[in-house]
Protein backbone atom coordinates (compact mmCIF):
# COMPACT_ATOMS: atom_id res chain seq x y z
CA UNK A 1 0.00 0.00 0.00
CA UNK A 2 1.18 3.49 -0.92
CA UNK A 3 0.21 6.53 1.12
CA UNK A 4 1.20 10.04 0.11
CA UNK A 5 0.46 12.62 2.78
CA UNK A 6 0.44 16.37 2.21
CA UNK A 7 3.48 16.07 -0.06
CA UNK A 8 5.25 19.31 -0.91
CA UNK A 9 8.39 19.32 -3.04
CA UNK A 10 10.52 21.83 -4.87
CA UNK A 11 13.52 21.92 -7.11
CA UNK A 12 15.92 24.78 -6.55
CA UNK A 13 13.53 27.70 -5.89
CA UNK A 14 10.60 26.29 -7.79
CA UNK A 15 7.78 24.80 -5.73
CA UNK A 16 6.22 22.00 -7.82
CA UNK A 17 4.19 19.74 -5.55
CA UNK A 18 1.77 21.63 -3.34
CA UNK A 19 0.27 19.14 -0.90
CA UNK A 20 -0.61 15.83 -2.55
CA UNK A 21 -2.76 13.35 -0.62
CA UNK A 22 -3.23 9.93 -2.14
CA UNK A 23 -3.70 6.34 -0.98
CA UNK A 24 -3.29 3.33 -3.28
CA UNK A 25 -4.34 0.20 -1.35
CA UNK A 26 -2.88 -3.25 -2.12
CA UNK A 27 -4.30 -4.80 -5.23
CA UNK A 28 -5.55 -1.53 -6.73
CA UNK A 29 -4.59 0.39 -9.83
CA UNK A 30 -4.90 4.15 -9.60
CA UNK A 31 -4.44 6.62 -12.43
CA UNK A 32 -3.09 10.13 -12.18
CA UNK A 33 -4.11 12.37 -15.02
CA UNK A 34 -3.11 15.92 -15.56
CA UNK A 35 -1.95 18.46 -18.11
CA UNK A 36 1.69 18.89 -19.07
CA UNK A 37 3.68 20.61 -16.37
CA UNK A 38 1.26 19.73 -13.57
CA UNK A 39 3.97 17.83 -11.67
CA UNK A 40 3.29 14.21 -12.66
CA UNK A 41 6.91 13.31 -13.43
CA UNK A 42 8.09 15.27 -10.42
CA UNK A 43 5.85 13.13 -8.23
CA UNK A 44 7.25 9.96 -9.79
CA UNK A 45 10.86 11.10 -9.26
CA UNK A 46 10.17 12.14 -5.69
CA UNK A 47 8.66 8.71 -5.03
CA UNK A 48 11.76 7.05 -6.50
CA UNK A 49 14.07 9.22 -4.39
CA UNK A 50 15.78 11.44 -6.90
CA UNK A 51 18.11 13.75 -5.03
CA UNK A 52 17.57 17.02 -6.92
CA UNK A 53 14.18 17.48 -5.27
CA UNK A 54 13.68 18.85 -1.80
CA UNK A 55 10.72 17.57 0.20
CA UNK A 56 9.52 20.64 2.07
CA UNK A 57 6.59 19.00 3.84
CA UNK A 58 4.60 15.78 4.07
CA UNK A 59 5.51 12.10 3.91
CA UNK A 60 5.49 9.03 1.68
CA UNK A 61 4.71 5.66 3.28
CA UNK A 62 4.93 2.17 1.87
CA UNK A 63 3.07 -0.37 4.01
CA UNK A 64 2.98 2.19 6.81
CA UNK A 65 6.72 2.91 6.79
CA UNK A 66 8.11 6.25 5.68
CA UNK A 67 10.55 5.87 2.81
CA UNK A 68 11.78 9.48 2.78
CA UNK A 69 15.09 8.59 4.40
CA UNK A 70 15.78 5.73 1.99
CA UNK A 71 18.24 6.01 -0.90
CA UNK A 72 16.87 5.34 -4.40
CA UNK A 73 18.38 1.84 -4.44
CA UNK A 74 16.97 1.06 -1.01
CA UNK A 75 13.52 2.12 -2.19
CA UNK A 76 13.91 -0.12 -5.22
CA UNK A 77 14.91 -3.16 -3.21
CA UNK A 78 12.10 -2.37 -0.75
CA UNK A 79 9.74 -2.97 -3.68
CA UNK A 80 9.23 0.36 -5.44
CA UNK A 81 9.57 0.50 -9.20
CA UNK A 82 9.39 3.52 -11.49
CA UNK A 83 8.88 3.08 -15.22
CA UNK A 84 10.51 6.26 -16.56
CA UNK A 85 8.74 8.61 -18.94
CA UNK A 86 12.07 8.91 -20.76
CA UNK A 87 14.14 5.76 -20.17
CA UNK A 88 17.86 6.51 -20.43
CA UNK A 89 20.36 5.10 -22.92
CA UNK A 90 23.52 3.59 -21.47
CA UNK A 91 26.01 2.72 -24.21
CA UNK A 92 28.56 0.11 -23.21
CA UNK A 93 26.24 -1.64 -20.73
CA UNK A 94 24.49 -4.51 -22.46
CA UNK A 95 20.82 -4.88 -21.64
CA UNK A 96 21.41 -8.40 -20.31
CA UNK A 97 24.25 -7.27 -18.01
CA UNK A 98 22.04 -4.51 -16.69
CA UNK A 99 19.01 -6.77 -16.12
CA UNK A 100 21.15 -9.28 -14.28
CA UNK A 101 22.74 -6.60 -12.11
CA UNK A 102 19.26 -5.31 -11.19
CA UNK A 103 17.88 -8.76 -10.39
CA UNK A 104 20.95 -9.65 -8.33
CA UNK A 105 20.82 -6.36 -6.42
CA UNK A 106 17.27 -7.28 -5.36
CA UNK A 107 18.34 -10.81 -4.41
CA UNK A 108 21.28 -9.50 -2.43
CA UNK A 109 18.97 -7.19 -0.46
CA UNK A 110 16.84 -10.23 0.41
CA UNK A 111 19.96 -12.16 1.47
CA UNK A 112 19.76 -14.51 -1.50
CA UNK A 113 22.58 -15.78 -3.72
CA UNK A 114 23.02 -14.52 -7.26
CA UNK A 115 20.59 -15.98 -9.76
CA UNK A 116 21.78 -19.00 -11.77
CA UNK A 117 22.64 -17.96 -15.32
CA UNK A 118 20.36 -20.56 -16.93
CA UNK A 119 17.34 -19.71 -14.80
CA UNK A 120 17.84 -16.01 -15.45
CA UNK A 121 18.18 -16.43 -19.20
CA UNK A 122 15.05 -18.55 -19.39
CA UNK A 123 13.04 -16.05 -17.35
CA UNK A 124 14.20 -13.07 -19.42
CA UNK A 125 13.47 -14.84 -22.71
CA UNK A 126 9.99 -15.79 -21.52
CA UNK A 127 9.01 -12.24 -20.51
CA UNK A 128 10.79 -10.70 -23.49
CA UNK A 129 8.79 -12.90 -25.83
CA UNK A 130 5.48 -11.78 -24.34
CA UNK A 131 6.57 -8.16 -24.82
CA UNK A 132 7.90 -8.85 -28.33
CA UNK A 133 11.45 -7.88 -27.37
CA UNK A 134 14.00 -9.65 -29.59
CA UNK A 135 17.22 -11.39 -28.51
CA UNK A 136 19.09 -8.87 -30.60
CA UNK A 137 17.68 -6.00 -28.49
CA UNK A 138 18.77 -7.77 -25.31
CA UNK A 139 22.35 -7.90 -26.55
CA UNK A 140 22.54 -4.22 -27.45
CA UNK A 141 23.61 -1.44 -25.11
CA UNK A 142 20.76 -0.60 -22.74
CA UNK A 143 18.11 1.32 -24.70
CA UNK A 144 20.72 2.31 -27.28
CA UNK A 145 19.10 2.82 -30.65
CA UNK A 146 15.70 1.66 -29.33
CA UNK A 147 12.56 3.39 -30.56
CA UNK A 148 10.35 5.13 -28.01
CA UNK A 149 8.01 2.15 -27.95
CA UNK A 150 10.86 -0.33 -27.51
CA UNK A 151 12.17 1.63 -24.55
CA UNK A 152 8.75 1.53 -22.90
CA UNK A 153 8.49 -2.22 -23.44
CA UNK A 154 11.94 -2.59 -21.90
CA UNK A 155 10.69 -0.76 -18.79
CA UNK A 156 7.82 -3.24 -18.45
CA UNK A 157 10.28 -6.12 -18.91
CA UNK A 158 12.29 -4.78 -15.97
CA UNK A 159 9.14 -4.42 -13.90
CA UNK A 160 8.15 -8.01 -14.66
CA UNK A 161 11.59 -9.30 -13.66
CA UNK A 162 11.77 -7.27 -10.45
CA UNK A 163 8.17 -7.99 -9.32
CA UNK A 164 7.75 -4.77 -7.31
CA UNK A 165 5.18 -4.27 -4.55
CA UNK A 166 4.53 -0.80 -5.82
CA UNK A 167 4.87 0.28 -9.44
CA UNK A 168 4.70 3.82 -10.77
CA UNK A 169 4.34 4.10 -14.55
CA UNK A 170 5.10 7.58 -15.85
CA UNK A 171 3.40 8.13 -19.22
CA UNK A 172 4.25 4.63 -20.34
CA UNK A 173 1.70 5.18 -23.13
CA UNK A 174 3.32 8.24 -24.68
CA UNK A 175 4.85 7.60 -28.08
CA UNK A 176 3.22 4.18 -28.47
CA UNK A 177 1.26 3.10 -31.52
CA UNK A 178 -1.88 1.08 -30.97
CA UNK A 179 -0.16 -2.33 -31.20
CA UNK A 180 2.57 -1.35 -28.78
CA UNK A 181 -0.03 0.13 -26.46
CA UNK A 182 -1.82 -3.22 -26.37
CA UNK A 183 1.41 -5.17 -25.73
CA UNK A 184 2.44 -2.84 -22.93
CA UNK A 185 -1.04 -2.85 -21.35
CA UNK A 186 -1.20 -6.63 -21.43
CA UNK A 187 2.21 -6.67 -19.75
CA UNK A 188 0.95 -4.37 -17.00
CA UNK A 189 -2.37 -6.20 -16.57
CA UNK A 190 -0.47 -9.47 -16.18
CA UNK A 191 1.23 -7.91 -13.18
CA UNK A 192 -1.97 -6.85 -11.45
CA UNK A 193 -2.10 -8.74 -8.21
CA UNK A 194 -3.81 -8.52 -4.81
CA UNK A 195 -0.45 -7.70 -3.22
CA UNK A 196 0.66 -5.02 -5.64
CA UNK A 197 -0.28 -1.34 -5.90
CA UNK A 198 0.09 0.31 -9.30
CA UNK A 199 0.04 4.03 -10.04
CA UNK A 200 -0.43 4.80 -13.72
CA UNK A 201 0.44 8.34 -14.76
CA UNK A 202 -0.95 9.49 -18.07
CA UNK A 203 -1.91 12.53 -20.03
CA UNK A 204 -4.51 10.71 -22.13
CA UNK A 205 -7.50 8.57 -21.33
CA UNK A 206 -6.65 6.08 -24.10
CA UNK A 207 -4.34 3.93 -21.93
CA UNK A 208 -7.09 3.56 -19.35
CA UNK A 209 -9.27 1.69 -21.88
CA UNK A 210 -6.67 -1.06 -21.66
CA UNK A 211 -5.58 -0.76 -18.04
CA UNK A 212 -8.84 -0.06 -16.28
CA UNK A 213 -8.13 1.79 -13.03
CA UNK A 214 -9.93 1.46 -9.71
CA UNK A 215 -9.57 5.19 -9.09
CA UNK A 216 -8.64 8.24 -11.16
CA UNK A 217 -7.07 11.39 -9.69
CA UNK A 218 -6.69 14.70 -11.47
CA UNK A 219 -3.46 16.56 -10.78
CA UNK A 220 -3.08 20.25 -11.59
CA UNK A 221 -0.46 22.65 -10.32
CA UNK A 222 1.01 20.04 -8.02
CA UNK A 223 -2.26 19.18 -6.23
CA UNK A 224 -4.93 16.49 -6.58
CA UNK A 225 -8.01 18.52 -7.43
CA UNK A 226 -10.49 15.74 -8.07
CA UNK A 227 -10.80 11.98 -7.63
CA UNK A 228 -13.33 9.53 -8.98
CA UNK A 229 -13.79 6.11 -10.57
CA UNK A 230 -12.83 5.07 -14.12
CA UNK A 231 -15.63 7.21 -15.54
CA UNK A 232 -13.75 10.34 -14.53
CA UNK A 233 -11.17 9.55 -17.20
CA UNK A 234 -13.82 9.45 -19.91
CA UNK A 235 -15.31 12.67 -18.65
CA UNK A 236 -11.89 14.32 -18.90
CA UNK A 237 -11.44 13.01 -22.41
CA UNK A 238 -14.55 14.90 -23.43
CA UNK A 239 -14.03 18.09 -21.44
CA UNK A 240 -10.23 18.39 -21.32
CA UNK A 241 -8.48 19.93 -18.37
CA UNK A 242 -10.08 23.34 -19.00
CA UNK A 243 -12.44 23.07 -16.06
CA UNK A 244 -9.46 22.66 -13.75
CA UNK A 245 -7.95 26.06 -14.26
CA UNK A 246 -5.81 24.86 -17.18
CA UNK A 247 -5.91 25.16 -20.91
CA UNK A 248 -7.19 21.97 -22.57
Amino acid sequence: MLEIRNLHARIEDKQILNGIDLVVPDGEVHAIMGPNGSGKSTLSYVLAGREDYEITDGDILVDGQSILELEPDQRATAGLFLAFQYPLEIPGVSTMTFLKAAVNAHRKARGEDEIAAGVFLKRVREVAKSLQISDEMLKRGLNVGFSGGEKKRMEILQMALLQPKLAVLDETDSGLDIDALRIVSEGVNALRSPKRSILVITHYQRLLDYIVPDRVHVLTKGKVVRSGDANLARELEASGYAGYGEAA
Binding site: P72, D73, F81, I90, T97, A101, A105
Partner: peptide, 25 residues
Protein backbone atom coordinates in the same frame (compact mmCIF):
# COMPACT_ATOMS: atom_id res chain seq x y z
CA UNK B 1 22.32 7.59 -15.55
CA UNK B 2 23.45 6.73 -12.03
CA UNK B 3 19.93 7.50 -10.74
CA UNK B 4 18.38 5.29 -13.40
CA UNK B 5 20.60 2.37 -12.33
CA UNK B 6 19.99 3.03 -8.63
CA UNK B 7 16.24 3.09 -9.24
CA UNK B 8 16.70 -0.54 -10.33
CA UNK B 9 18.35 -1.45 -7.04
CA UNK B 10 22.06 -1.00 -7.77
CA UNK B 11 23.98 0.64 -4.94
CA UNK B 12 25.62 3.98 -5.68
CA UNK B 13 29.05 2.30 -5.83
CA UNK B 14 27.81 -0.47 -8.14
CA UNK B 15 25.98 2.00 -10.38
CA UNK B 16 29.08 4.16 -10.72
CA UNK B 17 31.35 1.16 -11.29
CA UNK B 18 29.05 -0.06 -14.05
CA UNK B 19 29.05 3.36 -15.71
CA UNK B 20 32.85 3.63 -15.59
CA UNK B 21 33.18 0.14 -17.03
CA UNK B 22 30.77 1.12 -19.79
CA UNK B 23 32.83 4.24 -20.47
CA UNK B 24 36.06 2.26 -20.86
CA UNK B 25 34.14 -0.54 -22.59
Amino acid sequence: LAFYLRSRGLSEADAKALLVKAFVG
